[in-house]
Design a protein around this nucleic acid. Structure first.
Lengths: 218, 218
DNA sequence: CAAATTTGGTTGCCTTTGCAACCGGGCGCG
DNA sequence: CGCGCCCGGTTGCAAAGGCAACCAAATTTG
């Protein structure tokens, strides 16, 4: 399963074993709702989700929870904090029953003695770089003024990832609202309107875009 | 000057020279308002701002500009895109007259032959990790519902960085509005109200917080 | 199966804020 | 000196959307 993560993809069986050993991989199970990392806890390893879904959030002063990201199978969380070995106010919890593989990054921090370590270093950096780009996308979405604009941006991105106008979103409505930083009921309202206007169709988490293939370039 | 960047800090003169050579450093000057990188242009190197300020933004379909970040002396832009060698719709322009040192990252991508290369690799990764954390902060700010909440979060962060309740922000009002993704006039209005309410004081870009050391939750 | 819980949709109300227009001060430049 | 430009603040207006309350369907639990 770990090979679903770009960090470990296309490794031979032996390489994978060595890589996991190098990073002192340890699997751990969590029940739905369980806290994976409390705010202010340090993080000695970063997590690779093998199964289930995990939410990364921050609690603000008023106790409102802000969703930073939601992590599914093959995706990771906490690399940056773990790499920098900094404390962080981030709260991580399991949204469903989940299996997480914890990976320490000391092994890929210093000088690389062998080929495999070097590969992992490079891939780790690439992972961080890709994460940066995804966060840019998120910031772009959040910067939009209206809910409809946010949804358009969000859907466009989903469609790009899915490679077509039909896709499933990894959120329930409440999660989606948190991701877009809007009110849940307002989100429902806007989704209804967009359906009424013939822009989209949806059922549960499955969405279909009816957008015209944007004629002009951006 | 490059030693203001964490990538090059505390290097000997020879190391710095070698490092710059390794990354094929090239300095370039830009006039205020000049385009540094147009949307869709590829980026063969990332930029280290030596002097002046540079804005990283994205133009959305309606032509509205969304500010992703603003980069000052000693800070870098475009590392992720450059490292991944991906095209990107990002637009970069000089907000003031500026000097930029372009650094290629091929040299620090593959296997590291010498000590210096390894150091640069590690530091580059650390830079990306720190950038990730800063983007998290930004997402946190953007996720707030009201302008006042956004400002509180923003100011809190500024105060943390500055180590005290007085600080200067690196934006003019329009830039600040773009950073917080709110309307400029609404921002002005809210700032006035916060001053009226005794929460802050400000003149031009200098702000002073008068916040009580947050006692209880709401 | 019944009860309870979760999830998504609807609606009315009212605040916030985007928008547009305008004003005034500071600064640079001819 | 005077003109234009940039920047920041103000304000009236209208719309968007947060909030709360509620309902219906779906899903889980006993």
């Amino acid at each position: 399963m770990p090979e679903r993560c770009p960090l470990f993809s296309r490794l031979s069986k032996e390489q994978l074993r060595d890589a996991l050993a190098l990073m002192q991989a340890q699997e751990k199970k969590y029940a739905r709702g369980e806290i994976v990392k409390n705010a202010l806890d340090p993080l000695h390893a970063f997590g690779l989700v093998l199964e289930g879904r995990v939410a990364v959030s921050m609690e603000d002063i008023d106790g409102r929870e802000m969703l930073l990201s939601q992590v599914g199978p093959g995706q990771t969380f906490g690399e940056a904090i773990c790499y920098l070995a900094e404390p962080s106010p981030i709260l991580i919890s399991a949204r469903t029953d989940a299996r997480v593989l914890w990976l320490r990054c000391e092994g890929i921090k210093g000088a690389a003695e062998d080929e495999l370590t070097r590969l992992l270093q490079t891939r780790f950096t690439a992972m961080l770089a890709r994460r940066t780009l995804r966060m840019n996308d998120r910031i772009q979405i959040l910067s939009r003024g209206s809910i409809r604009e946010k949804l358009n941006a969000f859907f466009t991105e989903c469609a790009r990832d899915a490679g077509g106008p039909r896709f499933e979103v990894p959120f329930d409505r409440a999660g989606m609202a948190a991701y877009l930083a809007v009110d849940r009921s307002a989100l429902s309202r806007e989704l209804s309107h967009m359906r009424r206007d013939g822009l989209i169709d949806y059922h549960k988490n499955s969405f279909t875009l009816h957008m015209q293939p944007t004629k002009g370039g951006r």
